[in-house]
Amino acid sequence: MSAEVRSTLGVPLNELNSGGFQLPSWCWPLITVAVVLCFWEFCSRFGIISSRFIPPMSVTFAKLGEEALSGSLWPLVGDTLRGWALGLGIAMGIGIPTGVLLGSSPLAYRSVRVIIEFLRPMPSVALIPLTVLVFGIGLKSEVFLAAFAALWPVLVQTLYGVADTDPVAVDTGRAFGLNGWERLYKIKLPSALPYILTGVRISSAVSLILAVTAELIIGSPGLGQAIEAARQGSAYDAMYALILATGILGYLLNIGIMRMQCRLLHWHQSQRRIAP
């Protein structure tokens, strides 16, 4: 049986991968990234894009390496991380308990529903001027903005998660004699966990966005502020290097949270693979 078997979409089935001339799947993203980087280098070096405005890839990475090794990068990263962590922490500290409360009590939810629905779509950046007036231009403003923006995803997700608990599960608990508190942390919270973690993931991204925004616009210490300073000082290679660093930070945080989500939800349906 040497004929190649193909599925309906014309792509060889994975089981077929006997190695040989078929590239493993992790190769392809690397090839794409390599192509893009070379393209960047080429365009910038040969003047297709003015190298004053976009320095070549090699220069940017070199600058990034230089900043990393010289130690000037890390305090900036630390500042941004601090703003992000405090913002996310406060958001979770307020959002999760409130979400649990609102999810458990329809009356409480209905009382504040209008307020949430109005505050939630508000772009938190609209509060920047007000925040500056009240908190100044330092870390406090950054944390306030990050926390305010990050509050809503985690609160709403927790709320939905707790409210959406399978009523049959709750009643099973009741039939077995569990009281209100026990039903909460033994049934409702675990079943709401996927929602809560999705909320945390979104909130983490939002917190980072607002932290960097605050640094950019207000001038709180951190990567955002350094990027803007580089731009104003026309130090474009430093600016791009810092943007790259910010991107890498965002990417790593995102992956970290996703890993954690997988770990904590290993029992959940969404993580199950179809049994072979």
Binding site: M1, S2, V5, L13, E15, L16, S18
Partner: peptide
């Protein structure tokens, strides 16, 4: 006839 997979992992 229909065979899935190749070589040792083939399933007829």
């Amino acid at each position: 006839g229909k065979v899935y997979g190749m070589g040792r992992n083939a399933v007829e």
